[in-house]
Design a protein around this nucleic acid. Structure first.
Length: 514
RNA sequence: GCGGAAGUAGCUCAAUUGGUAGAGCUCCAGCCUUCCAAGCUGGAGGUUGCGGGUUCGAGACCCGUCUUCCGCUCCA
């Protein structure tokens, strides 16, 4: 048998996701919407269980961490303070020959810079020629300098107007008119200028005016920062403490691909941990370790994880690393752990004019706390779990089965109940077992097709246990329980089923391993 | 965004130089059946991604467009 190529394995995951109702492309009947996906009936369950495990591990297991649920809409100034407005609002242009991308404004400014250099050279030359040289007088009278300066002023004015009017065609025309060439290819074969603002915007209120523009949050973190003092005071939190949150965030990615790995609408699960300045590196190390252990607890295999320490740090961080997971397409970021210093809170202090300080009773002084962030992509985690769990297993006799070895606590259905045959009162007994279990567990019932087929169907969606009612069940009130991964069966009393499942499929079974 | 590949039933795929869109699995209704997808009968499911064009005739050829995967690029 040929080994499955990674590319095929990934395609297999995508088609499995669709075939069994985990993930569908958004608006599929309209040809889909690029890089947007919907979770189907089983995907929604799995995703919910993953989120719940994260939440309990964070909030329920730590008495100094609480959870919030901030709105997606935030005051527009939030994104000025966070740096998102300025940093991600650039007009970009590509050179078709070198395939390099440039910021259009930088290209134009560099061109202006060259003109300014020429002026300086004129000034230098003149300074050598004349004694008692008056540079200012020269600048204001020399014709060549005046011509250059006039050109600069014209370009700047034109560029400013184009940007203010958001006229990207004009920006491109400026580049063409100035005969700016790509430094690498030397060609003037440019694409159109495009504005890549990674934030989605919409307008609040019925009248759309500039002042009403608000953004869909590009990260959930800011909802925690702006609330940190509310939570600290009303929750009587003492540093160190954490605020956790799960929720949607939106980024208008230039290139969004690889199934649900990079989507335009995605869900983050993050926790901001507020600490005393100077202690942040200890907590950074603590969370780095704690979070990896959480991932390892899922049992997907330690070899699937590694740290990637950032050599180049973002402006707000003094330490950062990713926990990477080996996806079918290689090791990629799953979770980020960042020591964000007091950058965010300081920025919000500046922009809001409000003090965001914490009074430390031990030190008897106030300070802006430092922040250590853990931020995991729920959709990425979903993909990591799904792709690691899905196996094509060769069985004796040349048969294969498709089995989704999900951690039982995360599986959409905890158990499926089958009457062995559809007669002799077996369906009725199966129904009564289903009814008694459904209050505590998400369970399925299926009487269609041979029992072998039903086992395989449940294997493919990751149901850890199949409970089969047979003729013996009618006599001694026992059933067989078949294990998904081993395909082994054991006989259990019907009234012991609830305890059996409780011990194996409850989130507690995972939480206890942390 | 650039380059490459692809899109036919829920899934995996056929369809000869352009000549009536098919199969297997799945699904549905039954029959049979005492534990690992394989028996029997019947049935449903398609404007071949979408829109144009060439042609007597297009799933196939041409143009555009959407979507997906791969490489490059980007990624606070």
């Amino acid at each position: 048998m040929n080994p499955i190529k990674p590319e095929d394995a990934f395609k297999n995951i995508i088609s499995h996701s669709k075939e069994y109702g985990f993930i569908f492309q958004s608006s599929e009947i309209y040809d889909g919407l690029s890089a947007v996906y919907d979770y189907g009936q089983l995907g929604a369950e799995l995703k919910k269980n993953i989120r719940e495990y994260w939440w309990q591990a964070m909030v329920q297991m730590h008495n100094n961490i609480v959870g919030i649920d901030a709105a997606i809409f935030m005051h527009p100034t939030t994104w000025k303070a966070s740096g998102h407005v300025d940093a991600f609002n650039d007009p970009l242009i590509d050179n078709k020959d070198s395939k390099k991308r440039y910021r259009a404004d930088v290209l134009i400014e560099e061109h202006i810079g060259k003109l300014e250099d020429k002026i300086e050279k004129e000034v230098e030359k003149a300074a050598k020629r004349f004694e008692n040289f008056d540079a200012n007088l020269f600048r204001s009278t020399n014709q060549r300098v005046l011509d250059y300066q006039k050109k600069i002023d014209e370009i700047e004015a034109r560029f400013k107007n184009a940007l203010n009017a958001n006229n990207l065609e004009e920006v491109k025309q400026i580049i063409l008119d100035l005969e700016i060439v790509c430094p690498i290819s030397g060609s003037r074969n440019w694409t159109d200028v495009r504005q890549f603002n990674l934030m989605f915007s919409t307008s609040m209120g019925s009248v759309s005016e500039d002042s009403n523009t608000i953004y869909l949050r590009p990260e959930t973190a800011q909802g925690i920062f702006v609330n940190y003092l509310n939570v600290q005071k009303t929750g009587r939190m003492k540093i160190p403490f954490g605020i956790a949150q799960t929720g949607k965030a939106f980024r208008n990615e230039i290139v969004a691909r690889q199934f649900i790995f990079r989507m335009r609408e995605f869900e983050q699960m993050e926790m901001q941990f507020f600490v005393k300045p100077g202690t942040e590196m200890e907590w950074y190390a603590y969370w780095k370790n704690t979070r990896l252990n959480w991932h390892l607890s899922l049992g997907l295999g330690a070899e699937k994880y590694r740290y990637h320490d950032h050599a180049k740090l973002a402006h707000y961080a003094n330490a950062a690393c990713d926990i990477e997971h080996r996806f079918p397409f290689g090791f990629k970021e799953l979770e980020g752990i960042h020591s964000r210093t007091d950058f965010d809170l300081k920025q919000h202090e500046t922009f809001s004019g409000k003090k965001l300080q914490y009074f430390d009773p031990e030190l008897n002084q106030s300070y802006v706390p430092y922040v250590v962030e853990t931020s995991v992509g729920l959709d990425r985690l979903f993909l990591a779990i799904l792709s690691s769990a899905l196996k094509e297993e060769a069985l004796e006799g040349g048969d294969t089965r498709s089995v989704l070895s999900l951690p039982p606590a995360l599986a959409p259905y905890k158990a499926a109940i089958f009457p062995l045959v559809k007669k002799d009162g077996l369906p009725e007994l199966a129904e009564s077992i289903y009814t008694s279990l459904k209050f505590d567990f998400n369970v399925a019932i299926d009487e269609k097709d041979t029992v072998g087929k039903r086992y395989r169907r449940q294997d493919a969606i990751g149901t850890p246990y199949c409970i089969t009612v047979d003729h013996q069940s009618l006599e001694d009130k026992t059933v067989t329980v078949r294990h998904r991964d081993t395909m082994q069966q054991e006989r259990i009393a019907i009234n012991a089923l609830s305890d059996f499942l409780q011990q194996r499929v409850h989130l507690k079974s995972l939480l206890k391993t942390l």
